[in-house]
Amino acid sequence: MRLLTYFFPPRPTSAAIAKERLKIVLAHERAGSHAPDFLPRLQKELIDVISRYVDIRDDMIRVNLGKAGETSLLEINIEIEGAKTKAKLGSAVPA
């Protein structure tokens, strides 16, 4: 039986797919209904600041408000691997 499922992994049923999709969309919507609407602005300003130092594209920052147990969690993922440091750092910093 194990061997059988190893060689022929069962395709997920449509009900299993429905459940996964629902879990994801509802997790998103439940969080969204309490999320402050400053998140997009925060994301934009973070990009502005970081891009003074390194080249960064919009999609390299992800800002999320989540929950870990009872604690609200502001999660900011900044991807800078491969991002080029600005050549003249000094000039990037405002006076």
Partner: peptide
């Protein structure tokens, strides 16, 4: 249809 995996189970809906 639930048994055939074509419909969410009562446990699925309750869990969600």
């Amino acid at each position: 249809r639930v048994a055939r995996g074509e419909m969410l189970t009562v446990e699925d809906v309750q869990e969600i």
